[in-house]
Design a protein around this nucleic acid. Sequence first.
DNA 1: ACCCCTTTGTCCACGGTGTGGGTTTACCCG
DNA 2: CGGGTAAACCCACACCGTGGACAAAGGGGT
Lengths: 226, 226
Amino acid sequence: MNAMSTSTARRGRPPKGESRLSREAIVEATLRVIDTDGVGAVSMRAVGRVLGVDAKSLYNHVDGKDGLLDAVAEHILGTIELPERTGDLRTDLRAIAHAFRDRALTHAEAAALVLTRQLASFEALAPIEAVLTVLRAAGCPAEEAVHLLRTLVATLIGSLLREINAGPTYGTTDIEGIARRQAVLEGSGLPAIVGAAPHLARFDPGAEYDFTVEFALDALAARLGR
Amino acid sequence: MNAMSTSTARRGRPPKGESRLSREAIVEATLRVIDTDGVGAVSMRAVGRVLGVDAKSLYNHVDGKDGLLDAVAEHILGTIELPERTGDLRTDLRAIAHAFRDRALTHAEAAALVLTRQLASFEALAPIEAVLTVLRAAGCPAEEAVHLLRTLVATLIGSLLREINAGPTYGTTDIEGIARRQAVLEGSGLPAIVGAAPHLARFDPGAEYDFTVEFALDALAARLGR
DNA sequence: ACCCCTTTGTCCACGGTGTGGGTTTACCCG
DNA sequence: CGGGTAAACCCACACCGTGGACAAAGGGGT
């Protein structure tokens, strides 16, 4: 996989031209590991192996494993393709919400990091700025805008988190899976669940996300339009 | 810590009366580890140590580490103290939302498990049944009730997840922390963020949760009351 | 009463993890 | 040209999840 590498067992600082390691290269390699073998497979050694480099070398660019995962999350968050503003509240927020989902699903395995970790970096601020701008432009006062922003973000994160690690037990679109799940739910004996079992067993992530986004937008428009 | 234990090095099955191990005892011990040293400190060996038992013994009652963590999550979810129904949509849903939060914060470190994992067990169904019952009683058709349920759950989970692993970097209530965070935000140069910095820097989890719940309830009432 | 089988523990071992510490080298600046 | 520093290396440690072999207690069939 690597032309010249570990076999030569060169030690010490590498020559200038071939300084393979950089924060960005490491993050990218980590992302490759995650996309291939899942978040659980990330280890300093594994990432080092991908780069043909000793694990400890990573510590020169990244602050331990936790710092590495933070860096990955920030990278993903920072590369969301935010849409152009149109001036319409609903159109703009919907576009942001979908851009967020697109980015999250491109690296589904890595997205759990983004959704789970608390990020304080500069890169993480761009999407926040985008949402705030739209809200303020719609005439929302600063304090309320912040509360609404947080509510909105929480909703999107909760939705995506479920979508991402929803195994087939949660609900599916394939007919056989639905039938099986529905049977389990009906066996619970809880009346409301039994009554709604056909709908509980069916789960279409995209449609569900759309429903949630539209619900939130309705609520927002009603509140701001008053 | 244990009077009679490893020193005697007894092997083989323990006598009937003192069968220390049970699924419940293991879950409880795990919860103690989590509350003391965090989720990261959970290991088969650590849990075994608490019980004065070899790590491998746990495998007789629990399906590996993942199964153990699932069991803990289910235990927490299953012991939510659901409120009595009053018949009023807002009152009932609000009460459920707060019961959920109470339970989550009692074992804050463990709550991430509940919020993150997909649970399929019977115990996990009780809260769902409660929400569905309230929605159906308010005249909501089954399919819509399921969508609304999912939206609501996503929102609560997103909110709690942030609250639980929000370090002091995210925003605080203490004056010094707010000032520091505000300065960072103002240094970003992003206009909407700079303008809202005082509010972004302040974060009061309880108030934020209340705001989000009331926002969702408003939206729900408007939709169902139409 | 006997025997055997299942259950539920124990111990040993393996390959893997994050990271602390010390060593080596190439570059850069004076 | 010589010293300092940055960036790579290897060794070592304590810990992890769990596969597999073994032991002892209890229960069931004859």
